[in-house]
């Protein structure tokens, strides 16, 4: 009896999981996670150069490339008073969940995912720091300075949007060169990776997700290269600010807070962000 397409997909998923590329369910449903895992495995195969015998950028047991780096995740807002240009809260979800609560929740999930992914790849060592771990506020430059003090490779500030209670979309912001960004190209690459990953994760649960793209014309204090410690000669930290969705829109509130899959959606978004950060660390190793 021949195997069904679904069985073959299950076998492929199991193989990719054994190789360390896939962490989804072995269900024969070939979605974004499977595609991404397959692409990474294909990239790994094409990166092998056995004839020449040069350095292999992979661990000796053949699983995913080891990856190291320092990541600072910044949950936007917090506390009860405005400090250094940072408000305690801006957007509020349709059901009343505060943006500052959602940013902290997502930041902790991203941290957890980064640690889990890192520990699953032999030889890897990703250190993850949060600018805040409780309901406290920090000034915008103080947040960026955490990245400078920790000598971060990647700094991601997490926010949720609001507008008129009905618009949708995911957007990622970087500082433009005219506003003093000394490594805009690297920031844009990081931002694009995270933007694409977040969008794909949200689309798995909601077809109405909208891509608002990567934007570089905002004067965002938290992305100041001076505070991040980047100079033209030494620009180590790649940085962006993500606006996950418009939480004052009831459909988004249901998706992320009140609906039956809210926990799963938030985990998927966190995993997508973590994977994108790891891709960025690899690309800049």
């Amino acid at each position: 009896m021949s195997a069904s397409t679904k069985d073959i997909k299950k076998l492929a998923q199991a193989f990719l999981r054994d190789q360390g590329y896939y962490r989804g369910d072995i269900d024969g449903m070939w979605g974004t996670l499977s595609n991404r895992a397959f692409k990474r495995y294909s990239d790994y195969l094409s990166s092998l150069d056995l004839d020449i015998g040069g350095e292999r950028p992979v661990a000796e047991d053949g699983v995913a490339d080891a990856v190291s780096g320092i990541v600072v995740i910044d949950p936007g807002h917090g506390g009860n008073r405005k400090i250094g240009g940072s408000s305690p809260n801006n957007a509020t979800s349709a059901s009343g969940v505060l943006e500052k609560t959602m940013t902290l929740d997502l930041a902790k999930r991203v941290q957890k995912q980064l640690k889990a992914l890192s520990s699953g790849i032999p030889g890897s060592g990703i250190k993850v720091h949060l600018t805040r771990s409780g309901d406290t506020n920090l000034g915008l430059s103080d947040r960026a300075q955490v990245a400078a003090k920790k000598d971060a490779d990647v700094f991601v500030s997490i926010h949720f949007n609001g507008f008129n209670g009905s618009v949708r979309g995911t957007e990622t912001l970087i500082l433009s060169t005219e506003k003093g960004n000394v490594n805009e190209r690297e920031d844009r690459e990081l931002a694009q990776r995270i933007q694409s990953a977040m969008l794909a994760a949200i689309r798995r649960f909601d077809a109405n997700a909208r891509d608002r793209g990567v934007k570089n014309n905002r004067r965002l204090g938290v992305l100041s290269d001076i505070s991040l410690g980047n100079t033209r000669g030494e620009s180590k930290t790649r940085a962006c600010l993500i606006e996950v969705e418009f939480i004052d829109t009831p459909a988004v509130d249901e998706l992320l807070n009140t609906g039956p899959n809210a926990n799963e959606v938030r985990n998927a978004v966190a995993e997508a962000i973590a994977e994108a950060i790891i891709d960025d660390l690899r690309a800049n190793a």
């Binding site: 801006n90 957007a91 915008l140 949007n161 004067r219 965002l220």
Partner: peptide, 9 residues
């Protein structure tokens, strides 16, 4: 001249 997020801007 620094904004804190997209809705602020």
């Amino acid at each position: 001249a620094a904004f804190e997020d997209a809705s602020h801007a």
